[in-house]
Design a protein around this nucleic acid. Sequence first.
DNA 1: AATCTTCGCAACCGCCGGAGC
DNA 2: GGCTCCGGCGGTTGCGAAGAT
Length: 278
Amino acid sequence: MGRPPCCDNGVGVKKGPWTPEEDIVLVSYIQQHGPGNWRSVPENTGLMRCSKSCRLRWTNYLRPGIKRGNFTPHEEGIIIHLQALLGNKWAAIASYLPQRTDNDIKNYWNTHLKKKVKRLQTQPADSFQTTPSNSVASPNYYTPGSTQHNLQGMQSINNYPNTTNSSAPISSDATASTVSNFVQTWMMRPSQATTANYKITMQEYHEDQAAAVICKDQTLFNDDKSSSSGGMMAPVMMGPSTATFSLLEDWLLDDMPGQAMDGLMGITGGCCADPIMF
DNA sequence: AATCTTCGCAACCGCCGGAGC
DNA sequence: GGCTCCGGCGGTTGCGAAGAT
């Protein structure tokens, strides 16, 4: 049996890349009705797209507050460690990176980080302490754009028990607590972290993990999204913003989308991992 | 300059679980 | 309790861009 895919029964359902015009239609509709009830979106907007496609387009691309490309070493570190702890739970990982979508994180992992981690795991750890000839000769030195910082982070992964196999993540209350503690500690650090405080953070993380403090109040997977605004890892959209959508429309039609998006990021405060935010 | 290969990312597909009837 | 609907998630694919030959 089984239910057929929602897109199978649609005659003339359009596939492939979205056009700016379609984006505007979708954004305008969500501006008026809010996200959700995706089934009704194609019906009411006339978009020749299936509901699932509309939802994906919104959550992965049009949703305000999304930061695209240029993952910082800070973000890389979070992703690497959370992936080691949680496995390929991209949605859960994304909840700790409010400006990133699960799809973006998944892509970044598959195209960049997975290779780095694999390479690291196949080489002696000491080889990664080798300082490039054109950089400062200190293993603690982090040069933006280099891999030194990331390698240190990945190296620490190798020190974790049971985390070298991505298909076998730790699963326990302690894990959720550990992740929360780690990210909380991490987030407190300035994003332009120096290697010094990066290493301190990692050290604290290891200590936290060793302690395995159970924190019942901070569960990793919070099913109730509406009540998840209590902690610092619960980004909340402050409310509807007409200006946001105006910028969105400008951005969609702009020949230089980056500039408009920068303004958008400023307005939204760069916070919203929750698709339900209006 | 043309062709081939690799890479990165947007989008699709199939499955699952919860809600409603 | 069983069925359908819907939203969400993770894996995978397709295509354009960039780089290499």
